[in-house]
Amino acid sequence: MSKIDESRPFLPVRIAVLTVSDTRSRDDDRSGDTLVARIEEAGHTLAARMILPDERTEIADQLRAWCADPEIDVILSTGGTGLTGRDVTVEAHRDVYEKEIDAFGTVFTLVSFNKIGTSAVQSRATGGVAGGTYLFALPGSPGACRDAWDEILRLQLDYRHRPCNFVEIMPRLDEHLRRK
């Protein structure tokens, strides 16, 4: 089973937070605030934060810009993962992904099911990799952000987590782009 190996050092990662909403501002971005608080409590660095409207092209462009920024290791977006016509965050993420982390959505659904039952089927949370950067699209509720962080990302973004974690393979995410 998974555990924290205290003999390994903690390695902070640089995380950007993108809130996708047509109505939220910094003053009432509870989901973004939830993620920022957890990132900082865990000892990671908040590298950037932004709010964008539910516009697929704008979201994808920002994701690409952050993926190209060497000061950002991970991007967490919140909002726009549902089923309504304005929910385009998942599509924007998939426009950017080089590889999708299929199991992220599955594990998120399992975590959600234990909290909200069959309502978990309405989320399309997703994860992927692009340009050596991890990207995760989370639902827009503070509870869903807490669940994703507390149950999945907190552990996978901790180098000490065993048997494996996202941090230890970070240096190899873009190996296909390097010369041989």
Rank of each mutant, 00 (worst) to 15 (best):
L177T: 15
D33S: 13
P53F: 09
K180E: 06
P139T: 11
P53C: 10
D27R: 12
A68R: 13
F108N: 00
C145H: 03
E100S: 08
Y97P: 01
D61L: 04
G43E: 01
G32I: 04
G80M: 10
S141K: 06
G143L: 14
V17A: 03
I72L: 03
V167G: 08
V88L: 09
D28L: 14
I15Y: 08
D174P: 15
D150M: 05
V121S: 10
A103H: 12
I116K: 15
T45G: 05
S7Q: 11
P70A: 07
G82C: 11
R160N: 11
A42W: 02
E71L: 00
R30Q: 14
R94L: 11
D174L: 13
L35P: 15
T34R: 11
T89N: 04
F104G: 03
D87H: 09
F136E: 09
A16N: 10
W66T: 12
D147G: 06
R38S: 01
E40G: 08
H93M: 05
L110A: 09
D5N: 13
D5C: 01
D69L: 05
V129Q: 11
G32K: 06
G79M: 13
E55M: 00
C145S: 06
V13T: 07
V88K: 12
E58G: 02
I101E: 09
A120C: 10
R49E: 15
L157Y: 10
I152Y: 01
A47V: 10
I39D: 00
F113M: 07
R154C: 14
A37W: 10
G131V: 04
L63D: 03
V107R: 15
T84N: 08
R8C: 12
R56A: 12
K99Q: 14
D95T: 13
P9R: 02
K180W: 05
I39H: 01
A42Q: 07
L157K: 11
L173I: 05
H44W: 07
V74T: 09
R8G: 12
A48W: 04
L63W: 07
L173P: 03
I51A: 01
I75D: 02
A103Y: 10
I72Y: 03
E40T: 10
S141L: 07
L63N: 04
G140V: 01
R26E: 15
L135A: 04
D102S: 01
V74F: 08
L110N: 06
G32F: 07
F10N: 06
R124A: 05
E40N: 10
R49I: 14
E71N: 01
V36H: 03
F108P: 00
A47G: 11
F10R: 04
A60Q: 04
H176P: 06
D147P: 12
G140I: 00
H161P: 03
L11V: 15
S141G: 12
L173V: 07
G105H: 10
I59P: 09
F10S: 04
N114C: 06
H44P: 00
A37T: 13
D158Q: 06
V17K: 02
D61W: 02
R178T: 06
E168Q: 09
A65N: 08
T45M: 05
